[in-house]
Simulated assay, not measured.
Amino acid sequence: MKQNSLLQPLKEESFQKNTLELAQALLGCVLVNETPDGITSGVIVETEAYMGPGDRAAHSYSNKRTKRTEIMFGKSGLVYTYAMHTHCLVNVVSAGIDEPEAILIRAIEPYSGIELMQKRRPVDQMKNLTNGPGKLTKAMGISMKDYGKRFYERPLYIAEGIVPDEISIGKRIGIGGAGEAQDYPWRFWVKDSPYVSR
């Protein structure tokens, strides 16, 4: 993989894919955050797709447009952050304008700036550093202030990585009460990665 200094944001058109296709294409790509404290990055190893108005698990179910979900109605490649309990979670807005779909980045494998990640989020085992959507944002310094940024521009961006050898597919996690939507196979992960959330 390229050294961090050579990593470049994906082009805007790279995000213009069907949401389920993009959720899989993001696996192996590198999530990078350049902050005043330093640069951190990690290989995306797990994603979940949320398919908009017809998906009972999506924040935009029934075309619900609120201050929180407004960014989901924008163009593909925008940053959608939201708070859950005490955590900030980060998503890639997908589909087209007024098609409010998104992809949750669930887990990454640390790539650079690991000491800074550990300072932000001390853990006993490396695999626990970023193996969950709230864990990775804390380790990488991603916050609600990143809402509305563009993943194809610095400082918070996604860069090209290495295509995984094999991708696993299964049900999404933690969406009880979503009816039949909780059984949709819209979670994708790099097979055998120790950093997958579960």
Rank of each mutant, 00 (worst) to 15 (best):
K17D: 05
E13G: 06
H85V: 12
Y195S: 05
A57W: 01
Y152Q: 07
M1P: 15
R154C: 02
E46N: 09
A83L: 13
S76R: 02
D146K: 04
V90D: 00
Q24E: 10
M84N: 12
Y157S: 05
L22P: 05
K145S: 14
P36Y: 08
F151P: 12
K119Y: 03
G74S: 12
R150Q: 12
L20M: 10
E101I: 01
M140Q: 08
R106F: 05
G54P: 04
E12S: 14
I44C: 06
K17F: 09
Y111N: 13
F15V: 12
K67N: 06
P164C: 13
E12Q: 15
Y195E: 01
Y50C: 07
E99T: 10
T137D: 00
D183V: 00
I173P: 03
L6N: 12
Y147M: 13
E46R: 11
E101T: 10
A107V: 10
L10S: 04
V123L: 04
K138C: 02
V45T: 10
N131P: 05
E109S: 14
V43R: 15
E101H: 13
Y157Q: 01
S14V: 03
I142Q: 04
E109I: 02
N33I: 09
L22N: 09
T69H: 02
G38N: 09
A107G: 13
Q125V: 11
D124F: 09
S41A: 15
A102H: 09
K64A: 11
E115Y: 00
T137Q: 03
G177E: 05
F151R: 05
Y184N: 09
G52I: 01
P110Y: 14
S5I: 10
G52W: 00
K171G: 01
G77Y: 06
N131E: 00
Q16L: 07
Y157N: 01
V30N: 10
G54V: 01
A102N: 08
